[in-house]
Design a binder for these strands. Structure first.
Length: 353
DNA sequence: AATGACGCCAACCGCGGAGAT
DNA sequence: AATCTCCGCGGTTGGCGTCAT
């Protein structure tokens, strides 16, 4: 099969965009809106293929692009979402207003992935990796990208994806079961607040967990798994899928009021624009500072993976989303930590040293 | 000060899906 | 129903900047 490359026409430019090209593209889109990418270059007078134009616009020129370092909250979100959906960068980006899938992907590959590896966590499976897995090839060198989990062999990538889907489905089913039961209890008790003793087998944390997953399931993230790619898990109830808030698949990255940064728009799109945003400047280099001070024992180099990362991971397995708790404690057959019941604790131990 | 190594990121490539014909 | 066209996504690469020696 295969298709002819879209840029096979002679005379089309490739490579970095010039400020003039940027301006042409921005001006055209502002005047005419988004239409057919294929015809856009010709109509706008650009010697680029439509694909290149689309990429340039979505990854760099859109007015709602948020520049600057990732905030700790964003980093946390990326790790959490990646733990759920895997390499679905567009899905993750949809949850981070102003961030592009490309940007998130790059940030994951260059920062977060390494940090997890340094922490002894396999970034693909979230299982604890054995010993020091070398950071083979972050980009160059061609070889396989992910270090295979111990004794897992080549099946790692696909099993990871399957695991993510299974996690989703199981979490969703559990949440539905709980809500269903709570609903019965609620009606049985005449509308009084659900008797917590009747839910004695569910800790408050578990409640939060499942609520979280219902929210996520009803979000664009969950939508990615309700789609056709979702493994047709046996009990998947169509009814639950319909609970999705009608907010139709919003176009990616609905802007959230960051327009101020670009204001007038076109003039600020030069590719040479400095990357640092004033108000976010401290987030990466300085973010470790605040939390890091709590622990004065900064003797080994693992510290360099930063307290912030530890905090991020702690949050991951901890109270906030309680992913680790949910998968590990609530679903013993499927674990975010590769089925190892002690993995979460081990990770905590690792983090605390 | 020069140079090599490394890291980061913008852009490209190829594939698969969806809609149109 | 089959084929074609376009779009969007994820993986990969090349160039530039920074850091270390």
């Amino acid at each position: 099969m295969g298709r002819a490359p879209c840029c096979d026409k002679q005379g089309l430019r490739k490579g970095p965009w010039s400020p003039e090209e940027d301006k042409i593209l921005v001006d055209y889109i502002q005047a005419n809106g988004l239409g057919s990418w294929r015809s856009l270059p010709k109509q706008a007078g650009l010697l680029r293929c439509g694909k290149s134009c689309r990429l340039r616009w979505t990854n760099y020129l859109r007015p709602d692009i948020k520049r600057g370092p990732f905030t700790p909250e964003e980093q946390k979100s990326i790790v959490q979402l990646h733990g759920i959906v895997g390499n679905k960068w567009s899905t993750i980006a949809a949850q981070l207003p102003g961030r592009t899938d490309n940007e998130i992907k790059n940030y994951w590959n260059t920062h977060l992935k390494k940090r997890l590896v340094l922490m002894g966590i396999n970034p693909e499976t979230y299982a604890p990796s054995s010993g020091a897995t070398s950071l083979s090839s972050t980009g160059t060198g061609g070889g396989g990208s992910a270090p295979p989990p111990p004794s897992a062999g080549a099946a790692a990538a696909s099993s990871s994806s399957t695991r993510h889907m299974a996690q989703w489905e199981s979490a969703r089913l559990e949440a539905e079961a709980r809500l269903s039961r709570e609903s019965l209890l609620f009606s049985a008790s005449g509308g009084a607040a659900a008797d917590s003793s009747a839910l004695s087998d569910h800790s408050p944390a578990a409640k939060t967990d499942t609520d979280f997953f219902l929210r996520m399931w009803n979000s664009e993230v969950g939508e990615a798994f309700r789609g056709k790619e979702t493994a047709p898990a046996a009990g998947a109830s169509p009814a639950s899928s319909s609970t999705k808030c009608g907010g139709a698949a919003a176009p990616r990255l609905v802007k959230k009021g960051s327009r101020g940064a670009s204001g007038g728009g076109a003039s600020s799109v030069s590719s040479g624009e400095p990357k640092e945003d004033g108000d976010c400047k401290s987030s990466v280099s300085g973010e470790g500072g605040g939390a890091a001070n709590a622990d004065s024992s900064s003797s080994n180099e693992m510290e360099d993976t930063s307290e912030e990362t530890y905090q991020m991971y702690l949050n991951l397995v901890g109270d906030d989303m309680a992913l680790g708790h949910l998968f590990h404690g609530g679903l013993d057959s499927i674990s975010l930590f590769g089925g190892d019941p002690n993995a979460a604790e081990a990770s905590l131990d690792l983090a605390f040293g």
